[in-house]
């Protein structure tokens, strides 16, 4: 197996990683890039804990091979706060009480971020739909919806 070199933008910074190709993006980010906010809950695309944004679009990083993000721009939760200042969504998640165990949280916040980037004032139905690929077993989703509403200024 030949190593491959992968160059991409990670949280606004260009990075190049040399690694084995039989890794998924979730492994690449967690093991080679120290982005442990990217969680793994199912390894089959169902739970959404591994969600990251690729060029602004939420995807499950357990379903992508590392080499597939060559040239792409990746956002993980680590890159959401700028210079120590939390993103509006982050503060609203905290204020709304939308975080319990926190395992779904990184993926949930990123799915919500992708939604708000495209649609700054989503309806309740749009919020539900945007978060439908992120399972949460703790919160019953209700406070998460509220947090997104708050961040959208709805």
């Amino acid at each position: 197996m030949d190593k491959i070199k992968i160059s991409f933008i990670l949280n606004d910074k260009p990075v190049t990683v040399e690694t084995y190709p039989n890794k998924r993006v979730v492994d690449l980010l967690r093991e080679d890039c120290e982005c442990t906010s990217v969680k793994e809950g199912c390894s089959e695309g169902e739970c959404g804990a591994c969600t990251v944004l690729v060029n602004g679009t939420p995807v499950t990083s357990c379903l992508m091979l590392a080499g597939q993000i060559e040239g792409d721009s990746i956002l993980t939760l680590e890159g959401l706060s700028k210079d120590g200042e939390l993103d509006k969504l982050q503060t609203s998640f905290v204020e709304a009480g939308a975080v319990q165990c926190g395992y779904c949280t990184p993926g949930m916040v990123l799915s919500a971020k992708a939604l708000l980037m495209k649609n700054p004032h989503p309806t309740h139905e749009e919020i539900r739909r945007a978060l439908s690929g992120n399972l949460c077993r703790c919160t019953g989703y209700t406070k998460i919806f509220k947090a997104v509403d708050m961040a959208a200024g709805n």
Partner: peptide
């Protein structure tokens, strides 16, 4: 189909 993430990929 699936979820937003699956539809994106």
């Amino acid at each position: 189909v699936g979820s937003p993430q699956i539809r994106n990929l």
